[in-house]
Design a protein around this nucleic acid. Structure first.
Lengths: 155, 155
DNA sequence: GTTTTCTTGACTAATGTTGACTAATATTAT
DNA sequence: ATAATATTAGTCAACATTAGTCAAGAAAAC
């Protein structure tokens, strides 16, 4: 504890607030000033310590009255399962393998038929079709992972 | 919270009136005076927060006795409604406008909250982010339309 | 010594605010 | 009637105010 870096200190500060309330809203530059770091360090802290895997959802807005809001969310008990699917998706995935991912979710009871159909529509050829097969597989992977991450918590 | 921007405050003021009545009619300069902003800021608020995708129709008249009238629109029956959203999506769409589309579906009762969140995850920046903004907007439009088309069959 | 994590700042992007100029409509004067 | 003037709203571009990204270098961990 003697040798904490400033990112750890900022993390602890924010988590202390979150111990009492469901969410915390900050102005990036204010926190940066308060801890005497450049503003982008706040992004670094958030990106490394307030991920969805940790149970946090972050929203922000730029411009006048802008903010960064960190919300503590209730994680579901399907985390290991979701993790395994995220790993299976990787950074490229074919439609065929994407279908298998969605089917796994459905069979595990994580999503119902309607939700499965929405996911399938989102990764269908009619949805993702840039003409570059490799790029399509990358986008499909990102879309799937983004959805999988949302299935980690109750909203 | 403590430091809201004035556009949000004006938006909230108008929406509060619209919570009770079907429409609100204002004199632009009066509202501008009331909130101590230039008149054109009222146009900005309307253009960014009371679009057709948000479920509002705006009419106005210039000259003596001029006004701006904001009307909450009744949603059409489901098929026409989805058609109108597909048209609104077009072949490019920003995340901001995509969000409004999903919100419209939710508010119309076409999808529930979970389904809305899946759709939002599918068009989020974490999902669609090729580095080419224009391409991202095209893909986002295709993903949305693919999902909208599926909703048509199921409902 | 190498690899990972942290720190920094230049550059980018999104959103909000302002005011000068334009356009439409109504009212008044001729 | 027509023209001039007054009274509204609309557009657009400049500027202001926030947050995000990325890559280079420093520090720490291994």
């Amino acid at each position: 504890m003697e040798n904490q870096n400033i990112s750890d200190i900022i993390e602890a500060y924010l988590k202390q607030i979150l111990a009492d309330s469901q969410e915390v809203e900050i102005r990036r530059s204010e926190i940066a000033d308060q801890f005497n770091v450049v503003p982008s360090q706040i992004n670094y802290v958030i990106k490394t310590r307030f991920t969805i895997q940790d149970g946090y959802v972050v929203r922000s807005k730029r411009g006048g009255g802008g903010y960064i809001r960190i919300e503590k969310v209730k994680l579901l008990d399907n985390l290991d399962f979701i993790d395994s699917l995220v790993t299976a998706v990787g950074d490229h995935i074919t439609r065929h393998d994407g279908l298998a991912i969605v089917r796994s979710l459905f069979e595990a009871g994580s999503i119902n038929r309607r939700e499965a159909n929405i996911m399938l529509a989102a990764i269908d050829k009619s949805a993702i079709n840039t003409g570059d097969r490799d790029l399509d597989q990358q986008i499909r992977a990102q879309v799937l992972i983004s959805i999988l991450d949302h299935l980690r918590y109750e909203s």
